[in-house]
Amino acid sequence: MQTHLRQAQPYALGLFRIVIGLLFACHGAASLFGILGGAMNGGSIPVGTWPGWYAAAIQLVGGTLVALGLGTRVAALVCSGSMAYAYFTVHQPEALFPLQNGGEPSAVFCWTFLLLVFTGSGALALDGLFSRTGSARDKDRASEQAPSVAV
Results as ranks from 00 to 15, higher is better:
M1P: 08
Q2C: 13
T3K: 12
T3Y: 02
Q7R: 15
Q7N: 06
A8S: 10
Q9V: 00
P10H: 09
L13Y: 08
R17I: 08
I18K: 01
V19D: 04
I20H: 11
G21R: 03
L22M: 10
F24H: 14
F24R: 03
S31P: 09
L32D: 05
G34Y: 05
I35M: 11
G37I: 09
G38S: 11
N41S: 12
S44D: 08
P46G: 07
V47W: 09
V47F: 15
P51V: 08
P51N: 11
G52K: 10
W53A: 04
A55C: 09
A55Q: 10
A57Y: 14
A57R: 03
L60E: 10
V61W: 11
V61A: 12
G63S: 10
T64N: 06
T64V: 08
A67R: 06
A67K: 10
L68P: 00
L70C: 01
R73M: 00
V74D: 01
A75H: 04
A76P: 01
A76F: 03
V78E: 00
G81Q: 11
G81W: 06
M83E: 06
M83N: 10
M83I: 03
A84C: 15
Y87K: 08
F88L: 12
F88Q: 11
T89F: 13
V90T: 14
V90P: 04
V90W: 01
H91F: 00
Q92W: 05
P93A: 13
A95E: 01
F97H: 13
P98Y: 00
N101K: 12
G103F: 06
S106A: 13
S106I: 00
F109S: 12
C110A: 12
T112S: 13
F113W: 02
F113P: 05
F113R: 02
F118L: 06
T119F: 13
G120V: 03
G120K: 04
A123K: 04
A123M: 09
L124F: 14
G128D: 07
S131Y: 04
S131M: 03
R132Q: 14
R132W: 02
T133E: 04
G134R: 12
S135F: 02
S135A: 11
A136R: 15
D138A: 14
R141N: 14
R141E: 05
R141I: 05
R141D: 11
E144D: 12
A146H: 05
P147K: 08
P147W: 10
P147N: 06
